[in-house]
Amino acid sequence: MGFAEADVSLLDVLDHVLNQGIVLSGEITLGVADVDLIHLRLLALVCSADRALSSGAVPGVIPPRRRP
């Protein structure tokens, strides 16, 4: 599976958990460059115009994960 095939809500989850919510920095830290690289790729996808089309630009609220 490549980044391009990842589904929309998955990209949002990745975007949130990789980029945000940092109060602690753990001792086993990821190379900043690695995370930045991934984050840039994500950002490009999250922000791409194609995505609006493929997701149907769903109005309303998409839950962050599918609830059972």
Binding site: H16, V17, G21, L24, S25, G26, E27, I28
Partner: peptide
């Protein structure tokens, strides 16, 4: 308060 993925001590 969510932690970033792979916050490990």
């Amino acid at each position: 308060v969510p932690m970033k993925l792979f916050t490990i001590f």
